[in-house]
Structure formats: structure tokens, C-alpha cells
Amino acid sequence: MQDREQAVRLVGEHTLVRQVSDLARRVSSSDVTVLLLGESGTGKEVLARSIHATGPRRERPFVAVNCGAIPTELLESEMFGHERGAFTGATVARTGLFAQAHAGTIFLDEIAEMSPALQVKLLRVLQDKEVRPVGSDRSQRVDVRVIAATNKDLGDQVRRGLFREDLFYRLQVIPIALPPLRERRSDVPLLVEHFLARHNAGRTRPIAIAEEALVHLWEYDWPGNVRELENVIERAVVLCEHDRIGVEDLPPAVRAFLSEKRLPRPVLGADGIDLNRAVEEFEGRLITEALERTRGNKQAAARLLGLKRTTLVAKLRKVRDATGGVDEDVPRDEAARAAAGGRARA
């Protein structure tokens, strides 16, 4: 239901974006039901808006409903409306979002969050093109184009009995999957340029970005996808004290991404950590780096690491076994144990 200004097209030149945009353009001319799939922040709502904005219903309302953000008990009356006195607190009758979207498009985001009871009702609306407000005994006709979206694997939800199969097939006539940003990194510079241009429009002091900062943005994995990138750029623009965003203006998580790859800091997450494996990896990286720096001279590398040459050679053999070894299945544990023993002796 947010109505802030948004670009009504996906920004990018990646082949997947082109394919997705092409499909969106084609489905916009008809009323075929579209299901948009993708992680949060990949642009599902932007795409839904673009389908609406380029189709015959563009002069009519576009109503977005986030099914996950509205409490289950309220969602039905939000969607279909209610009569006065239909439930405690319903002091006046209210038009539902479906009726508000009449002749236009309704965008049902996070559709997987819908309760089973409401799924039945939605299916009926899609089949009969009628809605019945809560507490009413009369149905009203609605002419609405439905675009649904989810970041869940809806097929899996069906298999687990959490989502109705009949509704699933009704919704996913044309499924369009939006790629996560980390699968189309080549679009990062273009997106950055897009967000900067939006910021710079009408400003006397335009802000650019340093190439090294761009490299960092490219390497980050963007769990929050394009939306996260947009936020990072907005933040950087505010923090930036010059006319060019530098690495120092980026959030620590983005900034640390490249340097942590060099020697990733082991994180003890909620699921715990495989200590042997983490130690093994850390050790392996330091050994490789020492060897690189000494151009493969084991004696010199051992000195850098404070080891005897023979210890380094033994470790090297174990690391090779564990990372590039012939058979991973058996020796991994053994190698880890042996490495641990080796450390004790060293």
C-alpha cells in the first residue's frame, strides 16, 4: 500500500533481466494471472507496477496488499471489506481492497503467508470474480487483474500442505522468477548509476562514486538485493563528505566483504560451527598465502609461519588432502584429527 515514487521498470542489462522484462511486457497486454517469484528486494513490486502501468488498466487503480504484514484476522476484511457491526470494532462498513482495485490491478505480495481459510476464499474470488464483504450476505462483482508474489518456494509449500494446490495452479499460470542481485552482479554499476542519478537530479552538487567503492559493491552478496543496494547508496550519499563516494562511506558489512575473503573471520552462528573445519580452512589460507609470498619457497614460508620446514610440509600434505584430495569422504575427519595432533606436536 506504500505509494512512494518508484521506477516502473527493472533496471539492468543482464540477460535474465531482459528476459524477465520481456515477459512482463508481454503479459501486460492481457489479464493472464502472473505469479512473481524472488527473494525480498529483487523488485517484485516494481515489476508488478510495470505490468500494470504498461497495460490497458493503467488509468485504473493499482492496489498493493502485503499479505504478510496484515494480521491474519484482519486480512479478510482488508481484502474483501466488511459490513457495519460485522465484528467488534466494525463501527462503519468498509470497502475492501479488491473493490478498491475494481477495473485495475491488485498485487498480492507474500501470498504464501495467507491462512488456509483465506486461501479458500481467494480461490472463490478468482473463480467467480465476486467478493463478499465480511458480515454481508451479498456478493459484489469485481473486475480485477491479479498479480501475486512470494519469496517462498510455493511448490514446496503445497507439498508440505501449507498452500492449496488448486490455488497454486490458479495463480501460477505465468510464473516469472526474478534473479537475486548476486546472480547478476554485472548490473551493480548500472543500478548504482541509476540510484545516484535519481539523487543527483536537480542538485547543484552531484555525487559520483570511486571505482574501488564500486568494486566493493560488486563483490558484496546483497542478501537484501536491489533494495539493500538502494539503501546503501542513499546512506553513502548522506555520509559522503566530498563529491565522490569512497570505500569509507560504505557500511562495514560491504567494506569488510573483500578483506574478510582474504582471511574470513570465523563466525559462531546460531547453528554453531565446525571448529576443526574452520581451523583447517584458516590454517590452509595462511599457508597458501605464505607460499605465495615466498614464491613457493617452503623454507622461507615455514619461517614466516614460525614452523619447522618438515611441519609445514606435513601440514601442506594434509591441507591438500582435505581441499583437493583424492577422496573426501573418509579422510576429512582423519585429516582434521591428524592436523590437530600435528599442531599439538609442533
Binding site: T15, L16, Q19, V20, D22, L23, R26, V27, S30, V32, V173, I174, P175, I176, A177, P179, R182, E183, R184
Partner: peptide, 24 residues
């Protein structure tokens, strides 16, 4: 794996396009 996944996605989108062709 990520990039092989991209190729798979392309193939999936191609199939959707074919489905759209048949619907139209």
C-alpha cells in the same frame, strides 16, 4: 554453481515464454 543456476533460470524463463506463446 551460481552461474550454472543463471543458465537454468534462463531455460526456465524460456519455457514460460513458450507457455505464453501457446496461451496467446
Amino acid at each position: 554453481a551460481t552461474q550454472v543456476g543463471v543458465r537454468r533460470r534462463e531455460a526456465t524463463l524460456d519455457r514460460v515464454r513458450t507457455r505464453l506463446d501457446s496461451l496467446e
